[in-house]
Nucleic acid binder design. Structure first.
Lengths: 140, 140
DNA sequence: TATTGTTATACTCTATAACTATA
DNA sequence: TATAGTTATAGAGTATAACAATA
């Protein structure tokens, strides 16, 4: 094993490594649904906020709006998401899950819950709740 | 604010968002040194383990060895790192920091310490130590 | 003027396979 | 046969700027 030097007690480095490890678990859990992290999060947010605009989601997920266009195109081509013209503001699209989108989200969410359970098992029981709260403090 | 649904209590999602936020702080702190996360971590590891091989570092950082070649080339072109032929094993390079590499690492490490202090300030004092330990449990 | 969303582009990161040379 | 490192390539993520349409 190498001497990790300054990295061994680093929040920034440990966050990055933990995020990579969790990301690998994500890809395994979601491979069956062909959903990447940003795509899954988008489905969750549209499902919980029907009619939301692209800006609302892209800012929440910190995805640049220019890059979010392509992400949504992919989901729309798969008939998971629908852009509807917003009658009250013609610059805006109101986003909705299609029936297939809802069905896929239901199944993917169950897989996601199992993924989360697997991650939680790595942590001492007494810190599980606070751990997420602390992560959110860093995420602003 | 949007309803985050299942994501609001998710370890995987919160890790990713926190890692993105910490990464942005990293880029600000390290812009002056033109070091990206993998490059800085590589300098730290070579500095703490002179003579280490590429495999040792790339596995520790979970960077594919194929991608690590280019990362090292960049550091070598900047005269920060030196590949020396290993007399005991001719397949292998032994890696060392150059004098410039050591000097840059010293300065960058101070900036990194400030970055870490800024992140630590976001966390309640009583959890700071355990927080990194918990991250390391997830990183395997 | 400001906002929503699109297009284009470039750069980085990651994943994979095939390769050389040495052990 | 296995290991250390290289080359080539493609996919995905991210950052920036310019743009059209609408408010």
């Amino acid at each position: 094993m190498l001497d990790m030097g300054i990295l061994s007690s680093s929040v920034e480095f440990s966050l990055r490594m933990a995020s990579v490890a969790a990301g690998q678990r994500f890809y395994e859990a979601m491979r069956a649904f062909r959903l990447r992290p940003g795509q899954f999060a988008t489905l969750v947010l549209i499902g919980a906020n029907p009619g939301v605009g692209q800006r609302g989601i892209s800012e929440t997920l910190r995805i640049d709006k220019a890059n979010f266009t392509g992400l949504l195109n992919t989901l729309e081509r798969r008939n998971l998401v629908e852009r509807r013209a917003d009658p009250g503001d013609h610059r805006r699209y109101a986003l909705y899950l299609t029936r297939e989108g809802k069905a896929l989200l239901r199944k993917a969410s169950r897989a996601y819950d199992r993924l989360e359970a697997g991650l939680a098992k790595l942590l001492p029981a007494r810190v599980r709740r606070d751990f997420v709260a602390n992560l959110r403090l860093i995420a602003e």
